[in-house]
Every structure is written in structure tokens, then in C-alpha cells.
Amino acid sequence: MEKQVHVSRIGEEFKQEMKKQSQRERFISWAPVGILAFLVVLFSIIAQGFFSLTNLQNLLKQLAIPLVMSLGLTFVILMGSTDLSAQGLAGFVGAIMALMVVNSKNANNMGFLGILIAVVAAILVTAISGIIHIKGKLPTFMVSYAVSSIMQGFAVLSYKGEPALIRDEFFTTMSQGSFLGIPYLTYIALAMFVIAYVLQFKTRFGSYVMAIGDNEGIAKNIGVNIDLTKFKVFLWLGVCIGLVGFMGAVRLGRGEVGIGSNLVFPAITSVVVGGTSLSGGKGGVVNTLVGAMIVTVINNALVLLGVSPYVQQAVQGMIIIAAVAISIPHGKNLIVK
């Protein structure tokens, strides 16, 4: 009989710990929604003009690009990697796309074909960096860091000095126009969200990415084709970066390298703040939607509150540190690089 008591003591404690942990996880998984609601209420009170139809439209417009970018990164981060290549790559896509549609620098008029070429170029680049990562066994952020720099160079080189202004009327109206009060670009973003949602929850790919992020060793044992899944993640990232480059150029009205600056950081912030763990295997596209909304709302409100735009980045920096610090597993002997 005494034996039974012993068994229960440690076993019970262990079970309790597990329970506590899962309760904490559940709490954290709902926290982003709570934060979003809190921020909306807070800004409605303190920021004049925040709670208005025009600003709602603004928010939707501002949401579009960061959302697509962070949807691309979501799968990368879900499997425990990171990618910084959008910085240069999106600028590159925007630059060459502007040079292929009707523009101020040359006589091209490829229309949609131009966009297609630009997006395919982005996919090619991420595919190559994916292969370097998978076959060369180099960490993704290092590869993407170098790739970003290279692509940024190519972007600047492609237009030499003066960026091309987009003169194609279809695209110039696209940046301003809206349908049912929702900007066109936001439709693209929402469509991408739906696709990403299906990818994560309705395909094998989604489960496999989750498995790789949770524990690559187990995933391998279960029979997941690790390399192929990783490669597909990079293809998806390429699609998103390609679209972001295109949307950025349309929004800006010209194709310049600046499209890519200040893109990756808010996207990583969105993904992480939404509750997707940097170590992988936790979170997903719905979290990213919430995260992107949080980041957009904050940036929007900071402008309304008259805070210097220079401070925005700093605020994001602090948010991301707080979000990571809260969500990451702690332990004094854990190895974090």
C-alpha cells in the first residue's frame, strides 16, 4: 500500500505541472486577441479619429502588405527557421516589375506578364536560398541575410539611380481604388490569407510543417519528407515576397529598393506577437492575422497620436522583445543561440 502512495506523489506533481503548463499555454494562445481588443478600445479613447470609418479603411489598407509578408514568414517560422531575405528581394521584385509595365524609364508594356515574371523571379530566389539551406546545411537566417544583400544590390543596379515610375493606369488606379469600401490591395491580402489558411489546416503540407517545427527528429521518424516540405515552404515564401514587392511598387507608384526596407521587421513582429513561437511548431496563420492587426493598429495609432514616425520602429522593437520573452520557454540551462 505504501508503494502506491510513493507512486502518486511524484506522478501527481508531474501531472499537475503538465496541467499548469498547458493552462498557461492556453492563456498565452488567447492573449493576442485580448491585446488586440484592449488596444482597439484604448486607442478609440485616446487617439482622435481612430474609431472612424475612414480610419477603418486606412487600417485595412495599411494591413495589406504586412499581412501578406507575415503570411509568407509564418510557415518559415512555424518550422523553426527565419528568413530575412524579403528586405532586398521585395525591393528587387518591385524594381523589375516597375521596369516591365508601362513606366517612366523604358518602353516596356508587359502588363500582367511583367508581374508574373517578377513574382516568378522572387520564387526562384527563395527556392535557391532554400536549396542552399537544405543541402548546404546552413542556417536560414544567415543564407537569407546574404541573399537579401545580393538582391538589394541587383535592385539598385536594375534602375541605376532614378527608380522607374509606374505609368500603367491599371496599376496606378489599383493603389487607390476600392470595392465595397475595401481597398483592392486588401482583397489580395485577404485572398492570400484564405490560401494560407487552407494550406495550414487542409493539406498535408500544413501538418508536416507543424511536425518539423515541433520536433524535426520525430517528423523524420513519422515519415515526413523533411527536405521537400522545407523546399515548399520557401516556394510559398517566394510567392508572398513576390506579391509584396508588386503591392509595394503599386502602392508607392514606383519600383525602388525602399519597398523592402522596413518590411521584414514588422512581419516578424506580427508573426511573433500573434503567438507563433520562434522555435517552431506552435501558432499559425490565424495568429498571424491577429498579430498583423495588432502591429497595424499600433502603427496607425502612433501616427494619429502625433508620435514621430521614427519611433515606430523602436516601439516594434520593444514589442517583439516582450512578446518573445513571454512566449519562449525559460530555464537557466536551456541553450539559446
Binding site: V272, G317, A325
Partner: peptide, 10 residues
């Protein structure tokens, strides 16, 4: 415990 690349990126 924030990974260095994210801490320094911030």
C-alpha cells in the same frame, strides 16, 4: 532567453 538574432534585430 531571447534568441540573439531577434534581440539584436529589435
Amino acid at each position: 532567453g531571447v534568441p540573439s538574432f531577434i534581440a539584436t534585430l529589435s
